[in-house]
Amino acid sequence: MPRVVVFDAVGGPDVLHIVDEPVIEPGQGEVRVRIEAFAVNPLDVMTRAGMPPMQAPLPHARLGVEGTGVIDAVGAGVGSWGIGDPVILAAVPDAHVRGSYAEYTTVPANQVLARPAGLGVVESAAVWVAYSTAYGALVETAGMRPADRVLITAASGGVGRAAIQVANQIGAVPIAVTRRATAVDELLAVGARAVVATDHEDLVDATRRHTDGAGADITLDLVTGPGQRDLVEATRPDGVLVPAGFLDARPTPPSPDKVRVTGRYRSFEHTTDPVVVRRMAAFLTAGVRLGALAPAIDAVFDLADVADAHRHLESGRRTGGKVVVTV
């Protein structure tokens, strides 16, 4: 029978184990996807560990909010997909039931998209969460426009790199923030117009220097926590700050009214809206075709080594690309 990764208790990577389960036939409006690869995301790690923002009902919970594969079966009323069509999963809000850490998953037909031409299986597995989060936060929520100066924290991570590329595709000016001066050249090569390395320069002063003294028009905060206070100061008056991450679990201080701070952005608020998903898909497909959007891959593991994939993600040894598991 097909393999599925589950966990019965929260904890470290060793709580993950593989079980055999029968495939589920797709119901009305559903498709079954034979998974070829999936990405390991920080949200998966936090869910496995029992940390906010998403806690899975136990036991026998699944993981995985993105992946790629081919349509294996279609349910009644599905006329848009055929068996063998290559797809990516566009949203798995109930990952504890339908997660992509498996050989098969059955999802509503409107939660899959055509795999972008030009991407291989591994890259396709790693493209949706990072780019839909970056696009949703910057374009749909913040209204990013050409020439906007966009400050991007945690820029070496998957979403940060995607945000740099999304900003460039729009014609905005991405300014990357990193804690390590050793990452400056790498982020410039990814497409950042400027890089602020907080281990040797002041965030606010450097941002103002790169924005002719005005401050950032839009700030994408992928860390949150106490450091958001400096991001507010680095954003111009009446600018927009979008909290879209949770890398710092410490409380985030209240923000003054000098900037518009949106509510914490969660990608599912857009990726379950079919109208927005169509816009995201069109943007992604165009970006891949033009070479503007290209996911970076750090490491690839086999399904049998999924716990090692989690250990690698948590180790801090990544180069900034995504961790992918092939099935």
Rank of each mutant, 00 (worst) to 15 (best):
P2A: 10
V6E: 04
F7I: 02
F7T: 01
G12P: 00
V15E: 05
P22S: 08
P26E: 13
G27T: 05
G27R: 07
Q28H: 09
R32N: 10
E36M: 10
E36F: 08
P42M: 03
L43T: 11
A49R: 14
A49C: 08
M51T: 03
P52W: 11
P53S: 15
P53M: 14
P57S: 09
H60K: 13
A61D: 05
I71G: 04
A73Y: 02
A76V: 06
G82M: 15
G82K: 15
V87L: 13
L89W: 05
A90Y: 02
V92Q: 09
V92Y: 00
R98C: 01
S100E: 01
Y101F: 15
A102V: 02
Y104T: 08
V107T: 05
N110M: 07
N110L: 07
V112K: 01
R115I: 11
L119Y: 03
G120E: 11
V121I: 15
S124Y: 05
V127Q: 00
A134W: 01
Y135P: 03
G136A: 12
L138K: 01
M144A: 13
R145A: 15
A147H: 14
A147V: 15
D148L: 13
R149L: 06
V150Q: 03
V150T: 12
I152H: 00
T153M: 05
V159E: 01
I164N: 02
V166N: 07
A172K: 13
V173L: 03
A176G: 07
T178I: 07
T182F: 00
A183W: 04
A183Y: 03
D185K: 06
E186Q: 12
G191H: 05
G191I: 04
A192F: 06
A194Q: 14
A194G: 11
D199T: 02
L203W: 10
V204W: 06
D212K: 07
D212V: 03
A216I: 08
D221A: 07
D221I: 04
G225V: 14
P226Y: 10
A234H: 09
D238A: 11
D238V: 06
L241P: 00
D248W: 09
D248P: 01
T252L: 08
P253F: 04
P253D: 12
V259S: 02
V261A: 08
Y265R: 01
F268V: 13
E269T: 15
H270S: 13
V275E: 15
V276H: 07
V277W: 03
R278E: 15
M280A: 05
A281V: 13
T285K: 05
G287L: 10
A294W: 06
P295I: 01
D298K: 01
F301Y: 11
L303W: 11
L303M: 14
D308G: 04
A309G: 02
R311V: 06
R311G: 09
E314P: 02
S315K: 10
T326W: 09
